[in-house]
Design a protein around this nucleic acid. Structure first.
Length: 231
DNA sequence: AAAACAGGCAACCGCATGAAC
DNA sequence: AGTTCATGCGGTTGCCTGTTT
């Protein structure tokens, strides 16, 4: 390419690795503007770029895309990242979809440098705890329909009651957090919020309505599925 | 002024998944 | 139905740069 390859010397005599040059960026950008993104493995053939498809895709997604937002993560974005990470864990691509202009790589790096070494905040821990409680309740409800043994039913009812109490205690503990959760929800959906009643509970008693995530993976079911499959 | 250290970030790697054949 | 290939995702690595000693 330019003869000055640094640690990005030719890999096995074919693919270049390491930092991208301005010329390579230009080639890739031109290719995408002509052919659109996708078909990354054809980039090298069509442009002469000695980068493999994966490398091209990564460069485009993380750096060259015109809709990328430059600059520091804002406090609002930081809150969203914390909350969504509490819900989804390291689902960086999901989190990134909720933050237009940000990439999964960027969020992942930000998380690792800003949060990982510190203990999770109280709010984050609470968010996760409440989500898990709710999820557990739903699972219990499904199991209940399948197993109608009376003893088991009693046990499950006791457990649900205990979890319900725990959740209510968490909610009562600080209304400040409830307001906080509300504001995050509003940010996520651009202000439109429903299903939240003044007593601090959700209208229908589900996280789906509390969060109402919009284009963030559809609804509570999707979130639950994501969480479930992760474990 | 220079060496050591730490943080931030770009890029690579391996694996999983889905589409095409 | 099985195989191959392309793409996407999350984890990890290592360079660069700013800060501290």
């Amino acid at each position: 390419m330019d003869g000055q390859l640094g640690w990005g010397t030719l890999d096995n005599g074919e693919w270049r690795k390491g930092p991208w040059t301005a010329q390579e960026d230009k080639l890739l950008t031109e290719h995408v503007s002509l052919h659109g993104d996708g078909k990354w493995n054809s980039v090298s053939k069509l442009t002469g770029l000695r980068r493999n498809g994966k490398s091209c895709r990564l460069r485009w997604v993380n750096y060259l895309r015109p809709d990328l937002k430059r600059g520091n993560i804002t406090p609002q974005e930081e809150i969203i990242i914390q909350e969504l990470h509490a819900l989804w864990g390291n689902r960086w691509s999901n989190i990134a979809r909720s933050l237009p202009g940000r990439t999964d790589n960027e969020i992942k790096n930000y998380w690792r440098t800003h949060f990982k070494k510190s203990k999770p905040s109280k709010n984050v821990e609470k968010a996760r705890a409440r989500f898990l409680i709710r999820q557990r309740q739903e699972e219990q409800g499904q199991e209940e329909q399948q197993h109608l043994h009376q003893g088991a039913q009693q046990q499950q009812a006791d457990m649900r009651a205990a979890m319900k109490r725990a959740e209510e205690a968490a909610l009562a503990e600080d209304m400040e957090e409830t307001t906080y959760m509300y504001s995050v929800s509003c940010m996520l959906q651009g202000g439109g919020f429903s299903g939240y009643s003044s007593d601090g509970s959700t209208g229908d008693g589900s996280w789906g309505s509390l969060w109402n995530l919009g284009d963030v993976p559809d609804d509570l079911c999707a979130v639950t599925a994501l969480y479930g499959e992760r474990r």
